[in-house]
């Protein structure tokens, strides 16, 4: 099969695909604490109802069983909701809602690899729940934006106060979002991609 430089299509045989331009997937991670609205945001943007998939992750157990000095492997099944946005005739964007528990973040390297970036959703009534995600993306150098989901009683909170409280770097955008509203969520994605472009070589 003729292959242009950079063409990473894999086909063992040689059957040409019919697309005028080759299909290319992209992904954005939607992170944040439990119940912050990740699935709501995915549903607002996705052209299909959000689907759920499971990933089995193997980790060393954390010493609960201290009768043994041999580390024991445990397998955890983590469920992710995801959605799909067709961008143009060849680009398909996937949105993955990622579990927010801090003890899982070290397992997310595979998911983060190659991502456009991440949206960290914050519930202003429970901002501590978002620390782990912000810390993770900052450490991995993955572009991210912080989106403050509008809940009753959280209007008028100053963005600078949130930035200080969550130790969000100055270069990282913070926006209000209504996770139920397609246009509002699209604005957040646009902000993320613009931010990602400023950090792209």
């Amino acid at each position: 099969m003729d292959s242009e430089p950079g063409d990473r299509r894999v086909s063992a045989g040689g059957t040409a695909t019919r697309e005028a331009r080759d299909l290319l997937p992209l992904k954005i991670l939607i992170a944040g604490g439990f119940g912050v609205g990740k699935t709501t945001l995915v549903a607002a943007l996705s052209e299909v109802p959000p689907l759920s998939t499971e990933q089995q992750m193997t980790s060393l157990s954390d010493g609960v069983d201290d009768t043994s000095i041999v580390p024991e492997k445990t397998t955890t099944t983590v469920a992710m909701d995801f959605g799909r946005v067709t961008v143009d005739d060849s680009l398909v964007l996937y949105l993955f809602g990622t579990p927010g528990q801090s003890r899982f973040w070290f397992m997310w390297d595979e998911l983060a690899r190659g991502a456009v970036g991440a949206v960290v959703l914050v519930d202003l009534r429970r901002i501590d729940d978002s620390f782990a995600a912000i810390d993770y993306f900052e450490n991995r150098g993955l572009p991210f934006v912080v989106a403050l989901n509008s809940f009753p009683g959280t209007d008028g909170v100053d963005v600078d106060v949130v930035r200080d409280a969550l130790a969000v770097p100055a270069r990282c955008p913070i926006r209000y979002v209504d996770a139920r509203d397609d246009a509002s969520c699209t604005d957040v994605l646009i902000t993320l991609v613009e931010h990602s472009l400023t950090r792209s070589a």
Binding site: R9, L24, L26, L91, L93, G114, I190, L197, S200
Partner: peptide, 20 residues
């Protein structure tokens, strides 16, 4: 059809522009 990433492991700039 695999993602097209640059040497830095991130999506190519032209893809980000098309996404935008």
């Amino acid at each position: 059809h695999l993602p097209l990433v640059g040497p830095d492991g991130r999506p190519r700039r032209e893809l980000l522009e098309r996404l935008l």
